[in-house]
Structure formats: C-alpha cells, structure tokens
Amino acid sequence: MSETPLSAYDLAHADAPERRATFAVIVDNEPGVLHRVVGLFAARGYNIESLTVAETDHALHTSRITVVTRGTDQILDQIRAQLEKTVVVREVAEVGRDPEAIERELALVKVRGSGAERVEALRVSEIFRARVIDTTHESFIFEVTGAPAKIDKFEALMRPLGLVEVARTGVLSIHRGAERR
C-alpha cells in the first residue's frame, strides 16, 4: 500500500515533470491588488519563487506583477486560468515562452576569499560583466544583472570561490518593440 493516501483530491497529472515559469500579470492598480494575486497563490498552494511589482502606467492605473513559479504544465495552466479570472487582472503573459518578452534580474553577491580564489572570483565577474560595488582585503560585493538563468550560473560559479550571501531582486519583465503592453 502506498504511503500517500489515494486522495480524492489528487491530481491525475501529479507525476508530470515540473518546470519553472515566469508570468507577467498586468493588473488594475487598486488597493489590495498584490494581496489578491499573492493570496491566490497561497490559497491554492502554488509556490512563488520570486515576485516583483511596479506601477507601469499611472494614467491607465495599471501595474505589472512579474511572478516566477514552478509546476507541471497542468498546474501552470491552472495558475494562468486562475489569474485570468481574477477581476483585477487585465492580461497574463508567460514571459519565458514569449519571444517578445524580456526578463531581467539584479543580484548582489558577497564573496569572501584570498589568494587564487579571490583572483578567480574577479576574473569570473568580468566574464559576467558584474560590477564590484564594495571591497575589503578579503571580500567583494558584485552587482550582476541578467536573465535569471545567468544569475543562477554566476551564483553557482561563485559558490566554491567563497560565496557568503546573495540578494536578488526577483524578475522584472517587459515586452520588446515600441508598443506599450
């Protein structure tokens, strides 16, 4: 007998592979709107890997929430459908799947080390076009921007070189071209 109960609530597609997805959610900029979106994720048990919010158009009263989440295709379809049915949501785009959309994230990365490791950290940072924004004799703080995957990679390379701490902004997104979305 299996350990997990055969729940009436189990989803038929629970074994399907998960993937990460970034949704850009254009919402009416009104009080409580962030709570509504975050509350939806909490209430339905979807996870949030990162979240950014900014007013994008004051005259239109719209904000853009960029949320990075993870799930099976079935779950991601549900997340999208649930977002779309929220009255304050005007538009939902899956950024990673939209060639017209660009994602960027900024990270501050603190690395401690000396000797060869310290030199190597500096060399890697140049390859990633990271900036040194603080330094002591035994540490650097790098500022690096890019797609989330690039930041992940930077973090991975810095780990053996003495990575101490990382602060990431979460993903921002925008659409290419001259038009407003």
Partner: peptide, 14 residues
C-alpha cells in the same frame, strides 16, 4: 503575441 492570453483590453478608465 502568442503568449498573450487576452486581446488587448487595456483601455483608459472612464
């Protein structure tokens, strides 16, 4: 455009 779920419904508020 493909990933856009809704036709552009952005309209100025009344």
């Amino acid at each position: 455009m493909t990933a856009l779920s809704r036709p552009a419904t952005l309209q100025a508020p009344p």
